[in-house]
């Protein structure tokens, strides 16, 4: 019996001793934290995706509270107004962005130079003699972006191309960094009118290797009355801010490389006139 009592007493004693020790230590060693850090962390998505460049949402919350990051530094959150309120500053623009893979030359449309059997990694394939695709700019479809996406928003379709599910995409930008060919861009949501090609070769070269590659003909540039399309290095580029989604460039593109959702009234007006 005495053993039991001794054991209980000893363990209780140790526990109380350690408890007091820790309590004192936590007082003495307390690190003052900004209460705003916790509030901001609450407002952040909490996925710790790292898209902002800080180590997790907590890291960003500390940076915002410390003033070293802007209130809209989180590319995922759409709630930067609330964060701005916590910080007592005016809200900046916090529009949602979604990722788009700018290549539609899959197995059917684009030629292959050799059969690739190496590791399923776009960087590895890209470094091997410029990749198995005849087009050195096209989507390799090995899924490095799929791996990188923390929200499972990207899939490889049956045509061997990466496609982003706009619903699931949060615009964190992890896939942008994961693509060795810089094919993925963050664009406004709602399927904007986009040139789905990044090939800057001359038209004749592009025609030989891919049915749906931009040949740099410039027809779209002439069609656009908004001045939203420019030709850079044999490649049409659309400014999503200037574009009014009339859809004329989509209709006239000879290789059908421009795609996107067209605003209805304007489209019918075009076809009517």
């Amino acid at each position: 019996m005495t053993t039991v009592i001794a054991a209980v007493l000893l363990l209780t004693g140790l526990g109380v001793l350690f408890g007091i020790g820790l309590a004192v230590a936590s007082r003495k060693l307390a690190v003052e934290t900004d209460p705003r850090v916790d509030e901001i962390e609450e407002l952040l998505p909490g996925a710790n995706c790292g898209a902002c460049g800080y180590p997790g949402c907590r890291g960003l919350a500390e940076a915002i509270a410390g003033g070293s990051a802007p209130v809209n530094a989180c590319p995922v959150s759409t709630d930067c107004g609330a964060i701005a309120e916590v910080m007592g500053v005016e809200a900046l623009s916090c529009e949602r962005r979604v990722a788009k893979v700018r290549c539609i030359g899959g197995k059917k449309e684009a030629k292959e130079r050799f059969a690739y059997v190496g590791s399923k990694d776009c960087f590895a394939a890209h470094q091997l003699a410029g990749g198995p695709k005849a087009c050195e700019y096209g989507c390799l479809g090995l899924g490095s972006c799929v791996e990188a996406c923390p929200f499972s928003a990207i899939t490889i379709n049956e045509n061997g191309l990466a496609v982003v599910d706009e619903e699931k995409c949060t615009g964190c930008g992890q896939c942008v960094a994961a693509c060795p060919r810089d094919l993925i861009a963050l664009l406004p949501p709602g399927d904007p009118v986009t040139v789905y090609c990044r090939n800057t070769e001359k038209g004749a070269v592009v025609r030989k290797i891919c049915q749906t590659g931009c040949i740099g003909c410039g027809i779209c540039v002439k069609q656009c009355d908004q001045g939203a399309i420019t030709l850079e290095n044999n490649l049409a580029v659309i400014d999503p801010v200037k574009c009014n989604r009339c859809g004329r460039c989509i209709a006239k593109c000879p290789v059908k490389v421009i795609q996107g959702a067209v605003v209805e009234e304007t489209a019918s007006a075009v076809s009517g006139g």
């Binding site: 001794a6 054991a7 363990l11 820790l22």
Partner: peptide, 25 residues
């Protein structure tokens, strides 16, 4: 106190847990 036989594990775990907390602080 002649308690080593059966109190060893539990008291060591206690010590380690406290120690890790302390180191963290």
């Amino acid at each position: 106190h002649g308690l080593a036989e059966f109190l060893q594990t539990i008291s060591f775990i206690l010590v380690i847990a406290v120690l890790v907390q302390f180191v963290e602080m």
